[in-house]
């Protein structure tokens, strides 16, 4: 029998220490909605489970003003969805996180866990990449910050060093006239993994797009920041031609695989379709801001 230990430390230093002590056998438990499935299938056989939900910093949402928020990595989707100010400021990020699984999953699953599981199809990824979220990481050698798109190194792999824990992600302040949106394609209406996911974050000023970032999920080994798509939008009046150019950039950025969830052709096509649709929603929202 492999002995498993469970600990629920109250501080990040303790948690980090516990992970270091466990060597490669430590696993962080936030919502557990991925970890327990992986343990059950035998994909993960942890020696130590470190439950980080007793660490306040990881469980809170801070309003930093000007539309900037810091969200603890272990805060559940349900709590994020209930945070009115956050939802108003970052509807795309919130809707992406709220699309992770059923209401039951939402009760526990966190954006931090969704990110650290490092699936290229994770719903939080494209929206947070589009948002330009910064991650705060706590490790044995102190803290560091990285842009969210630098977290993943491949399917299921992150750039976190041993003992490092994702503490929170910070959404930046944005000028007036900004908003975001996230859309994914799934065969059913719920309970599926994204075949493609697109997050769009943009700012409109004087009828022109002044800033835009596009995140694209499930079409490559990691979530992509599609810089060309953003460039296609910036400076335009967000007319059909600009949207088509951005859609083409998304299609060009795709390096998908054929699998049980979709074909290469389909994913590539849908990346363009969803770019247009989510941009349309973001534009609508930005005009209202």
């Amino acid at each position: 029998m492999n002995d498993v230990r469970y600990s629920a430390p109250n501080s990040l230093d303790e948690a980090s220490k516990a992970m270091m002590a466990a060597g490669g056998a430590g696993r962080i438990l936030a919502g557990g909605t991925d970890l327990l499935v992986q343990m059950r299938s035998g994909m993960q056989k942890p020696g130590v489970i470190v439950d980080i939900k007793k660490i306040d910093e990881m469980m809170s949402i801070q309003d930093l003003g000007g539309g900037s928020f810091r969200i603890g990595a272990a805060v559940s989707g349900a709590l994020i969805g209930e945070h009115k100010a956050l939802k108003k400021a970052w509807p795309g990020v919130v809707e992406a996180i709220n699309l992770i699984g059923s209401k039951q999953i939402q009760g526990r699953a966190s954006a931090g866990g969704n990110l650290c599981n490092a699936s290229p199809a994770a719903d939080s990824g494209p929206a947070l990449v589009a948002a330009g979220a910064m991650l705060t990481i706590h490790g044995p050698n102190g803290r560091r910050e990285i842009p969210v798109e630098k977290l993943h190194s491949g399917p299921g792999r992150t750039t976190l060093a041993p003992g490092e824990i994702l503490v929170s992600f910070t959404l930046p302040a944005r000028p007036k006239g900004s908003s975001d949106a996230y859309l994914r394609l799934i065969p059913r209406t719920e309970m599926d993994i994204a075949v493609v996911g697109v997050g769009v974050n943009l700012t409109i000023s004087g009828g022109k797009c002044t800033a835009a970032r596009v995140g694209l999920g499930a079409v490559a080994p990691t979530v992509l920041l599609v810089e060309d798509a953003g460039k296609a939008l910036v400076g335009s009046s967000l007319d059909d031609a600009a949207l088509e150019k951005a859609a083409a950039a998304c299609r060009a950025a795709c390096k998908p695989i054929n699998d049980k969830r979709g074909t290469i052709e389909y994913r590539t096509k849908i990346a363009g379709v969803l770019l247009k649709r989510s941009a349309a929603i973001a534009i609508e929202r930005a005009k209202g801001n």
């Binding site: 065969p187 059913r188 209406t189 719920e190 309970m191 599926d192 993994i193 699998d259 049980k260 969830r261």
Partner: peptide
């Protein structure tokens, strides 16, 4: 009619042996 199917990989192994990828209708469909 719409989504359910057994999907096999090249090795003859079932690729979608779970409710997540064997897509039965949910209430919102």
């Amino acid at each position: 009619a719409l989504n359910e199917e057994y999907i096999y990989n090249a090795k003859g192994r079932l690729d979608n042996a779970g409710f997540l990828d064997y897509r039965m209708p949910v209430a919102s469909d």
